[in-house]
Design a protein around this nucleic acid. Structure first.
Length: 206
DNA sequence: TGTATGCAAATAAGG
DNA sequence: CCCTTATTTGCATAC
């Protein structure tokens, strides 16, 4: 239960095979992929090379990270929609978790092949009506609302569903947004408590 | 103007 | 349906 360890994909010195799992004794389960397919492609080295080559080829195509992210939706792969510029950027710089890198690799690989193929065919006709695809939306909670939520949290960190609905209405936010906010706030609280303890143990700095 | 990044929403998966 | 824990992304905004 180590929170906040968003173990980034560390390019160097990672053993080719001893990765993937965050918890030695717990369930691995990234969905339920059959890791038997091709494990050679999980090699950090291989990923590092792919990411670099991907960027080179992308630039050669004259496409931006944002373009790639948006274009992924046109690929129409089952569970794949578009991604943000941020994510593409992080993939190229290997600042995503190792598992995340592995999950995204085949998708970006497909896009690259497709894009180069089209470029070859001078198929100059971009985006048509297109993609009824969904991108994960991120709500931006304004400062005033955030302050109110913090005030509610201070008095009651775990409001009932009823209370949450009430707060949501008062702040003009979706109930689910408020519910998730409280969940995330609880996680944050826990992280803070941990780092505070760590600091108290002298593991911190100062 | 494209690219990084910090902070933290949204999701996944087991209860 | 909601929670927790672990993770995956995206908005905003700094380079």
């Amino acid at each position: 239960s180590h929170l906040q360890h968003h173990q980034m994909y560390t390019p160097m010195y990672t053993h080719p095979s001893a990765v993937v799992n965050t918890h030695p004794g717990l369930s691995p389960h990234p969905g339920n992929m059959h890791q038997s397919v091709h494990e050679s492609e999980c090699d950090p080295r291989e990923l590092e090379m792919f990411a670099e080559r991907f960027k080179q080829r992308r630039i050669k195509l004259g496409v931006t990270q944002a373009d790639v992210g948006a274009a992924l939706a046109n690929l129409k792969i089952p569970g794949v929609g578009c991604l943000s510029q941020s994510t593409i950027c992080r993939f190229e710089s290997l600042t995503l978790s190792h598992n995340n890198m592995i999950a995204l690799k085949p998708i970006l690989h497909t896009w690259l092949e497709d894009a180069e193929k089209q470029a070859r065919e001078r198929k100059a006709e971009l985006e048509n009506g297109l993609s009824g695809d969904k991108r994960r939306k991120r709500t931006s909670i304004a400062a005033p609302e955030k302050r109110s939520l913090e005030a509610y949290f201070a008095v009651q960190p775990r409001p009932s569903g009823e209370k949450i609905a009430q707060i949501a209405e008062k702040l003009d936010l979706k109930k689910n947004v408020v519910r998730v906010w409280f969940c995330n706030q609880r996680q944050k609280q826990k992280r803070m408590k941990f780092s505070a303890i760590a600091a108290g143990m002298g593991l911190g700095h100062h």
